[in-house]
Design a protein around this nucleic acid. Structure first.
Lengths: 342, 342
DNA sequence: CTGTTAGCGCCTTCAT
DNA sequence: ATGAAGGCGCTAACAG
């Protein structure tokens, strides 16, 4: 940059201003600088700016690489984040919480701090409060995606898991189902717990029994749901509908039903949760609860930017997006099929 | 850092050395520095180091956010990269080639340069030569993942698409199949072209005809493969086996077969490519060609590190990993089923 | 609209 | 084993 100042007979300062389009610079000066810059093959160096501003223009995305990064959910969040960052000078860096999260992520938090990330987006599953606390102590804007930390000062964007699961259950109930099974997710994740509680609440509200033997542990995995359902659906007294608390497990249910010769939705109605890619392409297309993951990302980026620039008076964002039930073809009115046949 | 120098009565320099474990520092000094550091709540600031060293410790991952980031393939690569970086001070930053790739990625390349990333990993699909050229001009170590750029000086790590597809086709042929259909991927991606060429070569080598009407365009998408196969498999003269050039499309074939009441593998043998997550959990488990994406990431990270530190005399890495055929239950000997029935 | 001064936090180099 | 000086590339703050 000094070189171009020399070449143009201008001060470094004017050059800086011209290059970054900031402050007042005459058109003449601007042109000269541009010319000299391209002649010298000059490229702006962010590191200098970072040092003076003590800002990196980097947002840290903290997530578990193993089992999360390859996920449709994660992908949509990243797309959303990127979209929210479009047109700014901010970029995303990845931090793996699973490899560094020993002692509540302290190592990871330290790294983020040392590297001076300007903001942090923490993606589940690490939304337990100790972990979050470690990061919120960093004095950097932070938002939790897909979780709802208890501490009132920590921002988050989440989906209304309870509401979505309640709606899904009620959808089955309205269809006339009374014998409804449930495939549970990972017990230590709060979203999984909320979905299960909503299921139980909906059943209770409609005075329907919840048979413990109709609740199976799927741990959010297709395979476990598959095997669990093989047993469940082989029983004489089997449910006429199943609510799988995520789509991956719903796929397992589909496989199990198919294996046993049960037709969906004629013999078994099925609702999932997430609306993953391809959920509209299963046979039959899956009725499920849509997870607004793209919106998570976009909103998070916008929130972080606002908070970083202080435009928002560093308010706290605690938002639960509504969970929309998407009705496709894996659910039908109980008995409809038999009646039609007769 | 100056504060802690003052507190310890040592020079900034000694403090620096103590903090970074470099050079000679007496144990006594080291201890004093540690104590003062924690007392002052000091945190090392990477930005300063970056400026002096003109190195950021950041590796850029360039990929198309849309349609790639949420992918199992991508996830495994990232896991591999992270693993290769474990124990170092390097981190990953994401650059979206799809939003910035106009004019052959120049905008994206510029960003990477301005931010002074120390190395670059370019993940397909942007492996066309103009695009790569733009980045390789950056004078930064670069490696292309999942592509094989022509230019001899550009490093890449890829899988032997041709060999894998050839083996997959031959597997079907050895099973006695003569009427084999092919589901093609995205015509503008070189891996897709290679897989198709290998299919045609294997057929030719075994003097088997390739019927144009048995080749359908799936564009790597489940849905398109599904619809294409619905037609294909409804024909009177239909193939007894299908090679889908990726697993996603193989899923579409499965759905189509099921819809038409055809049993896999009894009525139709099916081979995929990629070995995506869950490929072992389909019904039946899918025979496919394994894509070593984790290894891609790990090898890439190691290569970049070596090249950055100059430990490798900046050699070029051009490696095609062998593609391993994983035989599961979606393929069987032609006619075996009928014979068994009789 | 333009220039001067000074400094961000660390590290390289050389001297002690 | 430690210290002093200076600079990396940019920009804030103020002066002209």
């Amino acid at each position: 940059m000094e070189d171009i100042a020399r070449l143009t007979q201008l001060s470094k300062m004017t050059v800086s201003r011209a290059l970054t389009n900031s402050g007042y610079v005459s058109q003449e000066a601007r042109d000269k600088v541009q010319a000299a810059a391209s002649q010298l093959n000059y490229e702006f160096n962010f590191i200098g700016r970072q040092l003076t501003r003590n800002k990196t223009g980097l947002l840290g995305v903290i997530t578990s690489f193993e089992g999360f990064v390859g996920t449709y959910y994660f992908g949509r969040i990243i797309e959303g984040l990127q979209q929210g960052l479009a047109g700014t000078d901010y970029h995303l860096t990845l931090y793996d919480s699973s490899s560094e999260s020993f002692n509540d992520g302290q190592k990871c938090a330290k790294l983020c701090h040392q590297r001076r990330v300007d903001g942090l987006a923490v993606i589940a599953p690490h939304t337990d409060d100790d972990f979050i606390k470690t990061f919120s102590d960093l004095q950097v804007p932070i938002i939790v995606i897909g979780g709802s930390p208890i501490h009132k000062t920590i921002s988050y964007i989440d989906v209304d898991n309870f509401g979505g699961a309640y709606a899904a259950t009620e959808h089955l109930i309205h269809l006339g189902h009374k014998k409804i099974g449930f495939i549970a997710g990972l017990a230590n994740l709060s979203d999984a717990r909320q979905r299960q509680e909503a299921f139980e609440k909906a059943m209770a509200d409609h005075k329907l029994p919840v048979k413990p033997s109709w609740i199976i542990e799927g741990k959010y995995q297709t395979r476990l749901a598959f095997h669990g359902c093989l047993d469940l659906l082989s029983q004489d007294d089997r449910p006429t509908a199943i609510f799988a608390s995520n789509d991956l497990m719903a796929l397992g249910v589909m496989d199990a039903a198919r294996t046993l010769g049960l037709k969906i939705p004629e013999d078994l109605s099925l609702v999932g949760f997430d609306d993953i890619r391809g959920a509209d392409m299963t046979t039959p297309p899956l009725t499920t609860v849509h997870q607004p993951s793209y919106q998570f990302g976009k909103t998070s980026a916008q929130y972080l930017l606002k908070t970083i620039t202080g435009a928002d008076g560093n308010g706290v964002l605690r938002e639960k997006l509504p969970a929309e039930l998407v009705i496709r073809a894996s659910t039908m009115t109980l008995g409809m099929h038999q009646k039609a046949k007769r």
